[in-house]
Amino acid sequence: MKLAAMPDDNALAHGKAASGGGAAEVHSLAAASHLKRLEAESIYIMREVAAEFANPVMLYSVGKDSSVLLHLMQKAFHPAAPPIPLLHVDTTWKFREMIAFRDRRAKETGCRLLVHTNQEGVAQGVGPFTHGAAVHTDIMKTQALKQALTQYKFDAAIGGARRDEEKSRAKERVFSFRNAQQRWDPKSQRPELWNLYNARVHKGESVRAFPLSNWTELDIWLYIYRENIQVPSLYLARERPVVERDGQLIMVDDERMPLAPGEVPQMRKVRFRTLGCYPLTAAIESQADTLPAVIQEMLVARTSERQGRIIDHDASASMEKKKQEGYF
């Protein structure tokens, strides 16, 4: 078996022996593995979305959680092709590798891919360097997402958020209701008992569905490993050009990155724990250049993954606030 085999520059296939004997095992989740149980739960949620909504979409952000969602979606509707299109909100500041990876995966899986960019923001030249993290994220991500959901009249959007990510996420329902203004009201969420998800909405209202609610970051990585799921190689340590800003390592992914006088990007061996807009996604120094090594590093990790997201640091309650405004 080979590890970290690279089918092309943009992807990571970390290879595992084909589990051809899988079908011979007697399945019963009473005694089944933790990952199998999580997988079944996610499949159940996706099927509920497909069955109950007229016009659902899956938010595809190219990261590891989206890769797992895409994989689960293929399983949920097998042998049919996934009946739910993918939507990527492109802020125009994503890592270049992410865009190439996105286009290739959509082609390989046969999923319909919709890409939306806030053109008003582009016209105004909004970007993280000129407008700061908060304004950029609001206009190019939150507003762009709302534009897309309104434009396509989606009544449900599947997202990859997990409850272990952040405190306000820990409170969110699997089917999370949004009013016609796409706002989340954390103080009066619909009760959600058992796995009976209330999918009824009026025109203009919508539900955000989170099939990975009960997964942890570690579960995601172990599942990627076990199922041999492709993820961008940005997750693996490589020599990459970075500059250090406020104690954070930022990769210089293109020429739009303004450098201070005398500032020279340095090649350092780094990887990313989450993927987003490159100027807002800090790298960590790491020697983990294979998936098992990443998982092993994680087992001893002492910082949570959202630390690499610069947008969360403004205030502890900032995620809740952004979510109320429509952020995923």
Binding site: M1, L3, A18, T290, I295
Partner: peptide, 27 residues
């Protein structure tokens, strides 16, 4: 779980072991 092929990489064995233990834990 399907048995994995022998591998020289220590991390793989460690992760496989971990996966095995992680998976068989009850919830």
């Amino acid at each position: 779980m399907a048995k994995r092929m022998e591998s020289a990489a220590g991390a793989v064995t460690a992760i496989d072991d971990y996966l095995q233990r992680h998976e068989t834990k009850s919830l």
